[in-house]
């Protein structure tokens, strides 16, 4: 049984996502809509992590793996319009990672007949679907101007 292990992966993914969101909020504080949306997603991410607490899984977080994705994607300070585009690109990968982690956990929960966990997964995935749609939309809106005019 590796469900507990995936509970940890989900936590890690949400942790990474939260760090990425907060970094974007700091680095692009004048992009009001981005900051507000990231604030909303941080709130969701905190709710997701809190919702896992009831499952009391032992913490199998791999310290080396945990911050890896965030660090790899947000190693550099990126500012300005092009920096925003790159940061949103990085954020889309963190969202995708969280989405995949929750999806795997949801499949396990279904097979385990763990309806409580399944519901938690379903609610988190609903949020992540929205996050995914938003980041793709925002990237598409920003890309033409940034790439062509600067």
């Amino acid at each position: 049984m590796h469900v507990d292990q995936y509970l940890s992966h989900v936590r890690e993914a949400e942790e990474n996502l939260g760090l990425g969101l907060k970094k974007i909020m700091r680095q692009h504080s004048f992009e009001t809509d981005v900051v507000e949306m990231c604030e909303r997603f941080v709130r969701w991410s905190d709710e997701h992590k809190a919702s896992l607490e009831m499952f009391n899984a032992e913490d199998n977080t791999n310290e080396e793996e945990s911050p890896g994705l965030f660090k790899a994607l947000f190693a550099n300070m990126r500012i300005g319009p092009y920096g925003l585009l790159r940061d949103l690109h990085a954020l889309s990968l963190l969202i995708h990672d969280a989405h995949t982690s929750w999806t795997i956990l949801q499949q396990g929960a279904m097979a385990q007949r763990n309806t409580r966990l399944e519901l938690v997964c379903k609610e988190a995935l609903a949020h992540l679907n929205k996050e995914s749609m938003w980041v793709e939309t925002r990237i598409k809106n920003a890309a033409p101007q940034i790439l062509i005019v600067g």
């Binding site: 929205k130 995914s132 749609m133 938003w134 793709e136």
Partner: peptide
């Protein structure tokens, strides 16, 4: 569009 985020379907 999603009404919460504005994300486009």
């Amino acid at each position: 569009h999603d009404l919460t985020t504005g994300g486009a379907v």
